[in-house]
Structure formats: C-alpha cells, structure tokens
C-alpha cells in the first residue's frame, strides 16, 4: 500500500512517514470530566465505512499532527489541517 498524504507543511508524502492514531473521538480529543463521557471517548469507536476524521503524526517529516478526513473505503484523503 502506498497511501499518499498531502501534508500541509511537507507536500504529498507516502503514509509510511506518518503514524496513525485512529479516528478522532466524538466531541474531539481532550480531557473530559464526566466519567461516562470519558469512557465512551476513550474506548468506543464508531468505525464508520466512509468519511472519518483522523489524527496522523508526521514523524519522518515536520513532526506535526495533522487532522484529516479519510474515506475508509477508498482511502481518499481531504480536508487536511
């Protein structure tokens, strides 16, 4: 596989330069005070077939985190920030 990720800092780079941290939890990522909400955010995944917001770390490049939308069926990537 050779997914190419358009890094806003480094250009279009092969996915092997990145670490994936999986789908962005519902309501985003961050410290959550409510125990129930925190449990859902940490452990439950929607695992959608289609567009999914994800975080990727460009470890072999700019060493920045990217938030992007990846279609889990086609691997098409867009809206990278």
């Amino acid at each position: 596989m050779a997914l190419m990720i358009p890094c806003p800092h480094c250009g279009r780079r092969p996915y092997g330069e990145f670490w994936a941290s999986g789908e962005l939890p519902e309501g985003g990522h961050g410290v959550e005070a409510d125990v129930e909400a925190d449990y859902r955010r940490v452990w439950l995944r929607r695992n959608v077939a289609g567009d999914q917001r994800e975080r990727w770390f460009h470890h072999a490049g700019c060493r920045r985190w990217l938030t992007l939308t990846r279609n889990t069926i086609t691997n098409a990537i867009h809206d990278v920030v």
Binding site: H29, R63, W65
Partner: peptide
C-alpha cells in the same frame, strides 16, 4: 519519538 508525538498531540489539542 513516541513521547514527542504525545507531547505535541496534547499541546495541539
């Protein structure tokens, strides 16, 4: 390296 990604992740977040 893992720690760096972790630090940056939270700083960003």
């Amino acid at each position: 390296d893992v720690v760096e990604s972790w630090l940056r992740d939270w700083a960003d977040t």
